[in-house]
Design a protein around this nucleic acid. Structure first.
Lengths: 215, 215
DNA sequence: CCGTCGTTCAAACACATGTTTCATACGATA
DNA sequence: TATCGTATGAAACATGTGTTTGAACGACGG
């Protein structure tokens, strides 16, 4: 039952993807596009040119597959955030904006299509995902507390509880970027707002959040 | 088949609630507490001391019942927002903070337990609700555009697209207030942040959002 | 050549859930 | 009292969905 490593599933650049990797990537994309509720095992296996039983054979259950996708993508995101944070906090008193940028840049930018899919999957997991995933998001605040510490170092005059509050609000802004949210913005603005320019979007979000922190 | 009016279902203060009203309030509370996915027709009817068939008899289907709850609560919320906005925009150039307060106050404050339940239901509908409800939220931006207009009047120097962007961000902060979000904040802050004081929370949110708008 | 192991396949299974059915009770009205 | 429309009740129904089963296949080593 010891399945060979799936660690390369994330990159999706193997010379030839096996069934297990195809299931991983197909499930991720289908859920990113259509949401958790709409995607069934039959959808996934059919789209991945696999048998219905393939998911249970390779991953044990549908939930285990989805959880593995979630863990892999969340880990990637947090690792990248951590790297940027470390680069931003070499000084004793780091820049607030630099710390905030380290937090939000990895979840705004799309270096490639794979990352875009992964981010849309994570967005969906946060709101409409299985309770299991939302529990993890809710309770696993380890990486966030590192950002809270960095922000405290950058703004030592603010009490830590105040830092936590503003970080909470900043996350609200950051997480409000699903496809549905942007469709609403497009309707509201009559199409005048374009979230496709990710660099510009990043600066916009940073402007808003940094202003809130400086209040 | 013409069912007697359900318009009083919202208030829940009839001398004696009928089965239809009990189904309405029970479904709302169960979903507010446990989420859309976890609540079945059997849960609702059992808790409301009604027969399994009661939902279909009185509302046609489970989805119709939930949609009716959603419409009723969303209408109430928008009506209250509209009233506050009207009061805040008697001047030709209203205060930005007053406009923002009209937007967020009704969805932050809990005048009573019924309102608290209704808001938690709406919060869940926004993220994990049926696609039907999320479509409505996404496309029905009429009341939001009134706020955009008021903000434009308050800050005429900003282009309308910029208003839309900041309103979008403000909604992100506003909507990031589910139970799960606050549990996360509690863990992050080690219990130092108390979202139970709604008046204080309202001012905090206003501070953050208004700063973002003034950037 | 044989046997084993990992994999794939079609089919069936188990179960939860929304819905329907039809009988019955109730209440007002003539 | 008889009748009709409304409401409730217990049971069955229909269906979608995750999962399991047992056979078949293919590669590889002895």
């Amino acid at each position: 039952m010891d399945i060979s490593g799936h660690q390369q599933a994330g990159e999706g650049r193997g010379v030839q993807e096996g069934v297990k990797e195809r299931l991983f990537l197909t499930a991720e994309k289908l859920i990113a596009d259509n949401g958790f509720e709409a995607v069934t095992t039959r959808d996934i296996t059919a789209r991945a040119d696999a048998n219905i039983a393939a998911i249970n054979y390779h991953y044990g259950s549908k939930g285990a597959l989805l959880l593995e996708i979630f863990r892999a993508r969340a880990t990637e995101l947090n690792r990248e955030r951590g790297a940027l944070l470390r680069a931003a906090t070499t000084d004793a008193q780091p820049e607030v904006r630099a710390v905030l940028r380290a937090l939000i840049e990895p979840s705004i930018l799309w270096p490639n299509e794979a990352r875009r899919i992964a981010l849309r999957f994570l967005n969906r997991a946060r709101s409409e995902g299985p309770a299991e995933m939302r529990d993890i998001i809710r309770k696993d605040v380890g990486h966030l507390s590192r950002f809270a510490d960095a922000l405290h170092a950058a703004m030592p005059q603010l009490p830590k509880s105040e830092i936590a509050w503003r970080l909470h609000f900043a996350l609200g802004v950051l997480h409000h970027n699903s496809d549905a949210d942007y469709e609403r913005l497009a309707i509201l603005s009559g199409g005048a707002c374009d979230p496709g320019d990710r660099e510009a979007l990043l600066e916009r979000v940073l402007d808003f959040i940094a202003a809130g922190f400086a209040a």
